[in-house]
Simulated scan of single mutants.
Amino acid sequence: MLYEGVLRKMQTEMGSPIQYYMLFENDFLNVNQVLDKSLQINFIKFQCLNCGEDRPIYRQGFCKSCFYETAAAGEWIMRPELSTAHLDKEDRDLEYEKKVQLQPHIVYLANSSNIKVGVTRKTQVPTRWIDQGAHEAIEIVEVPNRYLAGITEVALKDHLSDKTNWRKMLTNDVKDENLVEWRNKLRSYIPEEATDYYIDNNTETHLEFPVLRYPEKVKSLSLNKNPNYTGVLKGIKGQYLIFEDNTVFNIRGSEGYYVGLGVN
């Protein structure tokens, strides 16, 4: 079976286990159905997610010029505390920034390789946790805009990480934590502007990933270095495909790469 198209972040559906889908222009693939089958990945060209041109991908699926121009790659995406739409102040495109920033956001704890703090739009729960490969997560605050979420994350980062160790996550070198206790312990560090939005009556969300076998150690597939790869798919976690030979492929990190996929 052959598929062809530009790689984008896999779409997910909560379940036991989580269901993963690769969406192409005229087709889609339920990736769970490829488990224990041979998957061939062939790089064909680049296709910037903004301009659609065949230009080398720079970051986040965009060519270099689009990365520095499109509103979808503003610095506030990675650093929510830099959001300014609530002040009616434009970064690159105020209409777009208001649409994204001025909506309910969640500050959460997620445990993928270790406990980390993060920010996401409320509409992206639990998608964001799935994308990070977290096996458990909990919400701490729900605020009305991205800026408040950002300053809360910055305050909590002084007390725990905001990074995921992707190698530990993919080898499943993780331990369970009591996230309710962590949430309660961190409450006093929430900035005054966000204290009224604290959530104190929720429980952990647990996530189950479709993995038949975890690798002992991982080697990362780069289509720049290895444009043609074939391997037996053994699992999907976060936005990674895990293969029998310990190769892992970051779909999200390869957005904007136009590929052919063969399933046998």
Score class of each variant (00 low, 15 high):
61 G>E: 02
87 L>E: 12
64 K>P: 15
92 R>M: 11
73 A>D: 04
47 Q>H: 07
58 Y>V: 05
45 K>L: 03
46 F>C: 07
48 C>T: 04
90 E>G: 09
86 H>V: 10
52 G>Y: 08
90 E>R: 09
62 F>M: 12
49 L>M: 05
75 E>G: 06
61 G>K: 01
90 E>W: 10
74 G>V: 13
52 G>W: 08
93 D>E: 12
35 L>E: 02
49 L>E: 01
92 R>L: 13
92 R>G: 12
54 D>A: 06
90 E>V: 15
83 S>H: 07
84 T>V: 12
88 D>R: 11
42 N>E: 14
75 E>F: 13
42 N>S: 10
56 P>A: 04
79 R>F: 06
82 L>K: 10
30 N>H: 07
64 K>D: 14
36 D>V: 09
78 M>D: 14
95 E>Q: 14
66 C>A: 05
51 C>D: 04
39 L>C: 04
61 G>W: 00
67 F>C: 04
91 D>M: 14
61 G>T: 14
89 K>M: 15
41 I>M: 05
28 F>M: 12
88 D>P: 07
83 S>A: 15
65 S>V: 05
41 I>Y: 02
90 E>M: 13
65 S>Y: 00
60 Q>L: 10
64 K>R: 13
68 Y>C: 03
71 A>L: 07
41 I>R: 01
34 V>Y: 03
48 C>D: 02
82 L>F: 11
59 R>D: 04
54 D>P: 05
37 K>H: 07
94 L>S: 15
56 P>Q: 03
43 F>R: 03
52 G>C: 04
45 K>N: 08
62 F>K: 04
52 G>E: 03
35 L>G: 07
88 D>L: 13
70 T>Y: 04
79 R>L: 11
33 Q>R: 12
71 A>E: 08
39 L>W: 01
80 P>V: 09
78 M>P: 00
63 C>V: 01
93 D>N: 15
95 E>Y: 14
45 K>Q: 09
63 C>M: 02
95 E>M: 11
45 K>C: 03
80 P>G: 09
83 S>I: 10
40 Q>W: 07
57 I>F: 03
68 Y>K: 06
79 R>Q: 13
75 E>Y: 11
48 C>R: 00
67 F>W: 12
78 M>K: 14
68 Y>R: 08
92 R>Q: 13
89 K>C: 13
83 S>Q: 05
53 E>D: 08
39 L>F: 02
59 R>A: 02
90 E>F: 14
85 A>C: 08
74 G>H: 03
31 V>P: 00
73 A>S: 15
38 S>P: 01
87 L>T: 05
70 T>W: 05
63 C>T: 02
58 Y>D: 01
81 E>H: 10
83 S>Y: 11
30 N>V: 11
42 N>R: 12
80 P>T: 07
29 L>G: 01
66 C>S: 01
69 E>G: 07
66 C>E: 02
50 N>R: 08
87 L>V: 09
52 G>D: 04
95 E>D: 15
67 F>N: 02
94 L>W: 10
70 T>L: 06
81 E>Q: 12
84 T>G: 02
36 D>E: 12
69 E>W: 00
88 D>A: 14
86 H>I: 11
68 Y>A: 05
28 F>G: 08
33 Q>N: 11
28 F>K: 15
57 I>M: 03
65 S>G: 05
32 N>K: 03
82 L>P: 01
